[in-house]
Design a protein around this nucleic acid. Structure first.
Length: 266
DNA sequence: AATGGGACCTGCGCGC
DNA sequence: TGCGCGCAGGTCCCAT
């Protein structure tokens, strides 16, 4: 499940591999993932365009094209971008001027590709909360101050703060020793400051290791990200807490599974 | 305003 | 072995 670190990893790798290359052909094997515009127009407007730059906002990848348009890619749950791709699982294949393919794979078809004139005007983009790395501790504390919501669903709320999903919310809260069900406004000043630090630290570390390949996520090369072995709680139900040996629990919060150490996190 | 549930999808792992 | 079912969780949408 790609979150900020996974998308950032792919963004950096795309910058090295495909920027400067021209799209020579687009094969749409599954039209469901093309959300905007029509498949015909999507292909027509992409062919001949050169990829000028790659941007990331929250979990959205944005390819800036030489024709002034932008290709926005959301991987959702099971999306993958692979270069050079073999086309085997591809939903959409972009043939590039170097003779290689950029494959968009997506087992569950939740992913979304949009070719747009102005990415800033997308509803999804306009409603996003700030990037974690654009915030300072004081601002983060202010944001939490009048929120009654449980802290974990709040961290995952893209309109509140963008880029954090189920995995990094759970890891941040473990590191800050905060129970995921706590009302946000109940956190002490010290806890808020610590949580902000841990959010940034865990995201940075995960980016360093190329993200977490828990499920379908792979790097642009098709290799797995290496951060899973550093997880303290996520996907570790029944295993001992790395700090106190207490058995890691999995509970439901806001309709999502979440992992915690019942002793360390209060 | 905030919360909960279902929808979108597929494939995996589980119990029988 | 095989079948049906629950489940994974990013985002949107609707109901309360």
């Amino acid at each position: 499940m790609p979150e900020l670190p996974e998308v950032e990893t792919i963004k950096k790798e795309l910058g090295k591999s495909v920027v400067g290359k021209k799209i020579t052909e687009v094969c749409v094997h599954h039209p469901l993932v093309i959300r905007q515009p029509s498949v015909v127009k999507f292909k027509k407007d992409l062919v001949g365009a050169t990829i000028k730059n790659v941007l990331r906002r929250a979990k959205l990848l944005i390819l800036e094209l030489s024709n002034g348009k932008y290709l926005a890619i959301h991987l959702k749950m099971t999306g993958q971008l692979v270069y050079p791709g073999d086309g085997k699982k591809s939903r959409v294949t972009f043939h590039l001027s170097d003779g290689k393919n950029l494959d968009f794979n997506d087992q569950r078809l939740f992913g979304e590709l949009r070719l747009i004139d102005n990415w800033q005007s997308l509803k999804f983009i306009r409603e996003l909360g700030p990037e974690p790395f654009d915030l300072n501790p004081e601002r983060f504390k202010e944001m939490l101050s009048n929120k009654k919501t449980k802290i974990k669903p709040l961290l995952m709320d893209q309109k509140f703060i963008s880029g954090i999903g189920n995995l990094y919310a759970a890891e941040s809260l473990f590191r800050a020793r905060i129970h995921p069900g706590r009302p946000a406004q109940s956190l002490s000043d010290k806890e808020k400051g610590l949580l902000f630090k841990e959010v940034k630290d865990v995201l940075k570390e995960a980016i360093h290791y190329g993200g977490s390949s828990v499920d379908n996520y792979v790097r642009l090369s098709g290799e797995k990200g290496n951060y899973v072995s550093h997880h303290k709680v996520y996907d570790r139900e029944g295993k001992p807490c790395v700090k106190c040996k207490t058995t890691i629990k999995r509970i439901a919060l806001g309709g999502r599974g979440t992992y915690l150490c019942p002793k360390c996190q209060t």
